[in-house]
Amino acid sequence: MHRFANPTTFMRIANAIFPWAAGLSAVLFLIGLPVALVTSPADYQQGDSVRLFYVHVPAAWISLMVYGMMAVSSAAFLIWRHPMASVSARALAPVGAIFTALALVTGSLWGRPMWGTYWVWDARLTSELLLLFIYLGYIAIADAFEDPERGDKAAAVLGVVGSVNLPIIHFSVEWWNTLHQPSIIKMTGFTVDGSILLPLFLMLGAFTSYTIAIWVLRLRSELLAVKLRNARMSEVSLAPSLNRGAAE
């Protein structure tokens, strides 16, 4: 298990996954977008507003999936101090924040014609908004310190603590009555017609593989940033001794 913490091994696996994830996402978007936005039927109640749901549901799913990955990375960093774990969590945070914002915006645009309001403070909407703030807080804390390693640690604590919100978001529609409707995908089956499920699953697959591909790209750039910082640090710490050597 711990050999995956080695950056070289980790990146070898990540780089091997990348072309598959990117390719799969391109194919699924090429099939899924026309099906979701053009050929799939309009809902008998919602009309064409139902098409927002093919972006909204995958974006909301990604917002939770990315946070799950970030929480696991944060915990691994706190427990085993694997440097790769904090690189992974830092790479994920902006991705999660953007998909959370996308889920909130698309939901709001759907809510106006359907519910009659852009926003209500019910348990689902409020807990999803809190998720956005946790992501933003993570990004802010991770870069708030002079010493990036202190930022890693503080952000990892927030990352683990924030995971308490995940079950609250998921079960909010069951634990309390909300304006937001309950999940359409349940353990026991679906509450939606097949012609609406197909584009939904295409888009869920497209968003998920896209996120994996973006994660690998972000891992590469975060690793480069760490290497660059380390190179600069060693230059700085080497410089005085070089000068002394020259003076003697």
Partner: peptide, 15 residues
Amino acid sequence: SEVLAKHDENYMPKE
């Protein structure tokens, strides 16, 4: 003062 519609694929709110 405000009336909102609740939408549900089951055509009935779970609650």
